[in-house]
């Protein structure tokens, strides 16, 4: 019951960035609701998996690939290209904070001189950014890599 409440709170806070960024990408009005549902679904799925101790990269891969297949269904139904829903839906999971920490660390490394702690921060955050980002894009691309090989989806 406690977990369910946490999941609902997580889903509530995840649909807002999904719709916000969908509006920056000018997703058509009728499709905003799908971005909201997708964002809430994908982020709360990742939260659930991480709650059971799965590392963030694998949880992200699972969440983004299920989003890829959900997007496949919606895109066949509405005859609309997949990135319209899927990219906005996974925006809440993009590792922006890790990426900026990495680059700010590099800037500090130049101004403040080399230190082992700083280097640790840079390498750990940088690698996490790369792997999470790879998991996100690879998960979204799975349907067209596995099922629609070279064929158009809509």
């Amino acid at each position: 019951m406690e977990l369910l409440k946490l999941l609902v709170i997580d889903a509530w806070f995840a649909w807002i960035p999904a719709v916000g960024f969908a509006m920056v990408f000018n997703v058509p009005k009728k499709m905003l609701i799908y971005c909201a549902v997708g964002g809430a679904f994908a982020h709360s799925l990742r939260y659930l998996l991480m709650h059971f101790g799965i590392p963030i990269e694998w949880a992200t891969l699972a969440a983004s690939s299920s989003m890829g297949f959900v997007g496949l269904y919606w895109s066949r139904k509405h005859l609309i290209p997949r990135p319209v829903f899927t990219v906005a839906s996974i925006i809440p999971m993009i590792p922006g904070s890790y990426a900026f920490t990495t680059i700010i660390g590099i800037v500090e490394l130049n101004s403040g001189g080399y230190s082992l702690e700083l280097m640790q921060v840079i390498v750990e955050n940088g690698l996490r950014t790369l792997f999470i980002l790879g998991a996100l894009s690879f998960g979204l691309a799975l349907p067209s890599i596995l099922i629609y090989r070279g064929r158009p989806i809509v």
């Binding site: 990135p83 894009s137 979204l140």
Partner: peptide, 18 residues
């Protein structure tokens, strides 16, 4: 975080994958 270039990053990796 509103300045994270999310769309170009996702597009970049999926272009390379395909």
């Amino acid at each position: 975080l509103l300045l994270v270039p999310g769309f170009p990053l996702i597009n970049a990796v999926s272009d390379m994958l395909k």
